[in-house]
Amino acid sequence: MARRRLLLLLKPFDMYPAHQSNGLSRITNPKVFSYLDNRRKVHKDAINFCQDILRKKFVDWEPVLRSKLTQPIRDVDLVVTVGGDGTLLQASHFMDDSIPVLGVNSDPTQVEEVEEFSDQFDATRSAGYLCAATIKNFEQILDDILDGQTVPSKLTRMSICVNSQLLSTYALNDVLIAHPCPATVSRLSFRIKKEGQPCSPLVNCRSSGLRVSTAAGSTAAMLSAGGFAMPILSKDLQYMVREPISPGEANASLIHGVVKFDETMDTSWFCKEGLIYIDGSHVFYSLRHGDTIELSPRAPVLKVFLRHHISL
C-alpha cells in the first residue's frame, strides 16, 4: 500500500510571544497577559502533539506555515490545518475539489475561563466551527480517515467574476462588497438572474455594503447581522444589504434573501473605488465605478471533514 501524502498547514505559534519588546509590556493587567501567553503555549503544544501523532503513522507529511503558502496545493492526499477556522479558510483558497481537508482546532474556547474573566475581558478563544478535531480526538479521526471509515462533506463555495473575469479565489464563507472606508456610503445595484435572465427586480441601494454568504458562512457575520443559519450542506447563497439608507417600500423586502443554486447575483458598483473582501479581510480585490460583479454558488466544492452533528 502506498504511503499517504499529507500537508500540515500551521497557524504561526508566535501570535502572543511573552517578550517585553513586542508591545505586550503595555498590558498592565497580569491576567490578560497570562491569558494571551497561555493561548500561544496551547497552540504550540497542539502543533507539537499533531506532529508527534503523524510521526507514528504510515504517511509522508510536510509542515508549512500558512503565511508561507503562496502556490496551489497539489500532489497530496489530505490537508490538515492546525489553528482555527481562519487557517482552514486560508487553505481553501489554494485548494480545488480533489483534496479533502481536516481542521484541528488548536485553541478551543474554555467555557469556565470565559465565565471567570467575563467582568474583566473577553476570554473567548477559537470557535473552530469547521474544525472536526482537537488534540483530544485528532488521532482517532485521522485513523478513521486513513482507514476510509469516514468521508468528507462537500461544502458549497462561491465564485466571483469581475467584469466577466473569474477571480482565482473561491469564497468558502462569504463575500463583502463595500467602500474601503467604512464611514463612506456604498452605492450599488443588484438583481438575481437565472439562465442569464432577470428573475428579480433591480435593487438600487445606498448602504454600508453588500454581504453574500455560503451555507458554511451563514453562521458567522451573516447570522450576527440578523440573517439565518442555513443547513451546512445547502447549495444556496444568502445575501443581505448592510445598513441600508432609506430602502423604500419597493426595495425593503429585497435587501435580504437567497440566491438558489441555479441562479446568480449580478451587481454593479457605482462608487469611485470599492473592495471585494473574500472570507475576511486578508483577501480582497479592488473595484472601480461601473464594474460588474457576478456571484455564483456553482463553484468547485471543498471537501471538508466535519463534526458529525454539524454535517447532518
Rank of each mutant, 00 (worst) to 15 (best):
T81N: 11
Q90C: 15
D75S: 15
L89R: 10
V79Y: 05
L88G: 11
R66W: 03
T81M: 07
R66V: 13
L89F: 08
F94H: 14
L65R: 07
G86E: 03
D77S: 12
S67D: 11
F94C: 04
F94V: 13
Q90R: 15
G84A: 10
S92C: 12
D97C: 08
V82Y: 05
D77Y: 14
G83D: 12
L88R: 13
R74F: 02
M95Y: 07
T87E: 02
V80Y: 04
V76Y: 12
A91L: 09
A91Y: 14
V82L: 10
L69P: 12
R74H: 11
K68I: 05
G83Q: 07
V76W: 11
G83L: 08
L69K: 13
V59W: 03
D75G: 09
V82K: 08
G84C: 11
F94K: 12
V79N: 06
S67F: 02
G84D: 07
Q71A: 09
T87S: 12
L78N: 09
E62D: 01
P72C: 05
P72G: 01
T87M: 03
V59I: 03
H93G: 03
I73N: 06
W61L: 00
L69A: 09
M95T: 03
V64A: 00
W61G: 00
V82Q: 05
V82F: 06
K68N: 15
S67R: 13
V80P: 12
T87H: 04
G86W: 04
S92Y: 10
D97V: 01
D75L: 13
G86C: 05
G83I: 06
H93I: 01
A91F: 14
R66P: 01
P72I: 04
V82A: 07
S98V: 07
P63S: 02
D96R: 15
L78G: 10
T81K: 09
S92K: 11
D77E: 11
S92W: 11
T70K: 11
L89E: 05
D60M: 00
D96F: 10
D96Q: 15
S98R: 15
V64P: 01
D85L: 06
V79K: 05
D97N: 14
D85Y: 06
F58G: 00
M95Q: 08
P63N: 02
L65Y: 14
F58I: 00
F58Y: 06
L89K: 08
G83Y: 03
D75T: 08
L69Y: 12
T87G: 04
L69Q: 13
K68C: 08
V80Q: 08
F58M: 01
M95F: 05
K68D: 15
G84K: 04
V76E: 03
K68G: 03
D85M: 04
D85N: 08
T70N: 12
E62Y: 03
T70M: 04
T70A: 09
S98H: 14
D77Q: 09
D85K: 08
L65T: 08
G83E: 10
G86D: 06
Q90P: 04
D96W: 14
L88C: 13
L88E: 10
